[in-house]
Design a protein around this nucleic acid. Structure first.
Lengths: 225, 225
DNA sequence: ATCATAATTTAGGTAAGCCTAATTTTTATC
DNA sequence: GATAAAAATTAGGCTTACCTAAATTATGAT
């Protein structure tokens, strides 16, 4: 019955997109926590999003949500803007990579198609944001990258960092200190049997860093063959 | 009694600022029209804005509103952002001067203090926006400029354009076509007695342009002595 | 000064998007 | 497969910022 929905759809869609990347559906609770609102509110909004014309999501009670193709386009549109802003702020305005996420989170909603185009052009159509996340192109195509978790690296083997988690400034500053950034070459020194904590060496800086297992799972690398 | 008010205060404050520049109070109807909402809504909001702590405006029934010093600071803060964005878009992203107002109108609300600082620095602390409007500095001081309306120029006399109206893209494109922009040197050729329509010559381009009286009143110049 | 008209305010109401509390459904364990 | 715990939904409410219609106040022309 309803037709149009507000601004913050975009936040819902982005989160749903993230949570359903792996193929599973996004749960009400997951979304509530990620969005910082109550589960009841999520249920409510999700029902609306499934009844627009066309619908943004498919929703079945107690089964979680999935994006429709239409919803996915909408999500990718906003993700493209978010990541373009991030890389722009770093490249052109001297931001550090731990500062850009929060800023982009706000700016993405205020970005016109024209501004998107100009920023894209000013950066010569960048393919990745500062954290290594791929930027959907103008047609919202997103390149598939072969990547594995840092945690799956074997001791003594080497790899190249592809992406790091992007939301927590503290983590980003920690990683930055050691030179762990997209493009950095690393080698796994050791892994404790008890808690899987890793020591890795960063080729470019010569530093060694300690990475816990949960962080290790969020850092993506390409393994050296 | 109330304490905090929403986002769009800023739009109210900006408009009130503009309408009270000349010293008079801003009327309910004026604001309603400028904001594209009903007069009743303006009355309502204005009452709220006069009851915050501290209040943004002083308001007396049927007498219109004025900004308090607090409200004026808030207005200048957003005007600074608006104008910084405008000049940034022109200087760094290839916008034309008729495109930037609408864009800035949205972006100004999404601009963090850090972004403001970076943009200000990237442009080396610009003093004017693309339309010649002064940009309040970091302390929200706004330089007073000696200026008069184009319409007050005497026939045969010369002047330098200081600012042009900034909101209507059509007008801006018209002016741009003749080279009428801040800094341009002009000479008044003639003025019809009947409707005060002026013909002016632009030194830089050699063009002649016809300017009606209402537009002539909105273009500010410095008269050549 | 009166009175029509214009401007403003008041009253009452709506839609969005959130909330808490109560209820229902699912899930996981014994 | 019963049942306790967890997850999700429904019901009912709140706030913000808008609206229209009706009432009030101000203004300006005679």
């Amino acid at each position: 019955m309803p037709q149009k929905i507000s601004e913050n759809i975009q936040d819902y869609l982005k989160r749903i997109y993230e949570f359903t990347l792996s193929g599973s559906r996004a749960s009400t609770n997951q979304l509530a926590q990620a969005l910082g609102i109550s589960a009841a509110s999520v249920t409510n909004m999700v029902q609306k999003l499934s009844k627009t014309d066309p619908p943004y999501v498919t929703y079945e009670k107690h089964q979680g949500v999935k994006l429709t193709p239409f919803g996915q386009q909408a999500a990718l549109k906003i993700i493209r803007r978010h990541r373009l802003i991030e890389i722009y702020l770093v490249e052109k305005l001297g931001y550090t990579w731990d500062e850009v996420h929060a800023e982009a989170e706000v700016l993405e909603h205020a970005m016109s198609p024209l501004l998107e185009k100009r920023i894209d052009a000013a950066l010569d159509h960048p393919k990745f944001d500062p954290h290594g996340d791929p930027i959907p192109d103008i047609n919202l195509e997103i390149p598939e990258i072969e990547q594995t978790a840092l945690s799956s690296l074997e001791i003594g083997n080497k790899g190249r960092v592809l992406r790091v988690p992007n939301e927590d400034p503290q983590v980003l500053r920690y990683l930055g200190k050691f030179g762990i950034r997209p493009g950095a070459h690393i080698k796994l020194i050791s892994r404790t049997p008890y808690d899987q904590t890793m020591r890795i060496k960063i080729t470019e800086t010569g530093n060694e860093a300690v990475i816990g297992p949960s962080l290790g799972n969020k850092i993506s690398i390409a393994k050296d063959s």
